[in-house]
Design a binder for these strands. Structure first.
Ligand SMILES: [Mn+2]
Ligand SMILES: [Mn+2]
Ligand SMILES: [Zn+2]
Ligand SMILES: [Zn+2]
Lengths: 142, 142
DNA sequence: CATTCAATGCAATAAATTTGCATTGAGATT
DNA sequence: AATCTCAATGCAAATTTATTGCATTGAATG
């Protein structure tokens, strides 16, 4: 749940018109405390407005391309989406429950990843380092 | 490329009959120096023997379930497969080129991930920690 | 008022994987 | 030997997730 980010500003700063649909998608992602799948986002939006599934996919592509939203891979087949790192959102690892598909945010320092050496030596371009922990969540353990 | 692993033993140790197809899938994965997609594996096998795509998927599921092979997520839509950590294969991060889809193994120490704290405090079951670097590979940079 | 174009919708398609059911063939059982 | 059984595999259809092509709309611009 993010109270700091101004979604309209984020869109404008990336030269994107702040349309209702874009704002809605961004709010669903930003107001949630863990990453969501495109299906999750679509289902949530459908409850309060009329929007097409394809529009959600297209907006997500756009937001990812502009670096506003992060596309996060899971141990499953669907991508999940969360706010990309910015002044209010620091990079952090995620936990994916292979039983229920719920994804959680882990604290920034729960896993300590030192990427300095790699950045120096890697002979290509590095865009992103993704750390994901897979397992069974507390709820599903019972 | 692995010369240490005895694939037949690995299968037997997991109570799996060492069928020709299972050995072939495991050899393709083990003899390769980077993870492959199911399609890669299928294409490779089709060149020298007659095997069904579904059989490949089923064998991969089985090998993953038994912990012989690791299912590795990418920034793309398909899973990749590599030898699971064992005495000859230590856990390590991977690099995924978002342009050509090639996945590379990074050295165990190119990224230093400290998971001790998490293991102590996490209120669920942890099966796996996956670290993936996304970007553009040396070849695709040109 | 006419034109343009970004945003969206709708239907069809694609890619990757999974499922259901049939077939096969190597032992085990009679 | 004939029959039975069952794990392994094959083949076709279905599922899941995402993408593409083309039509529509409506606000901004001239
Ligand atoms: Mn997160
Ligand atoms: Mn590897
Ligand atoms: Zn769970
Ligand atoms: Zn590449």
């Amino acid at each position: 749940m993010c109270n700091q980010c101004n979604y309209e500003n984020l869109l404008n700063a990336s030269d994107l018109n702040a349309t209702d649909n874009r704002l809605r998608v961004l709010e669903v992602i930003g107001n949630n405390s863990y990453p969501l799948s495109a299906a999750d986002i679509f289902t949530t939006l459908k409850r309060t407005c009329s929007i097409n599934r394809v529009t959600v996919y297209r907006i997500l592509d756009l937001l990812v391309e502009r670096g506003i939203v992060d596309r996060i891979s899971t141990g499953g087949r669907a991508f999940y989406y969360g706010m990309a790192p910015n002044e209010n959102h620091h990079p952090h690892p995620h936990f994916y429950c292979t039983r229920c598909g719920q994804m959680d945010c882990l604290t920034q320092d729960s896993l300590n990843v030192d990427t300095k050496a790699l950045w120096k030596t890697f002979p290509g371009r590095i865009d992103k380092v993704e750390v994901r922990v897979d397992g069974i969540c507390k709820n599903c353990m019972k």
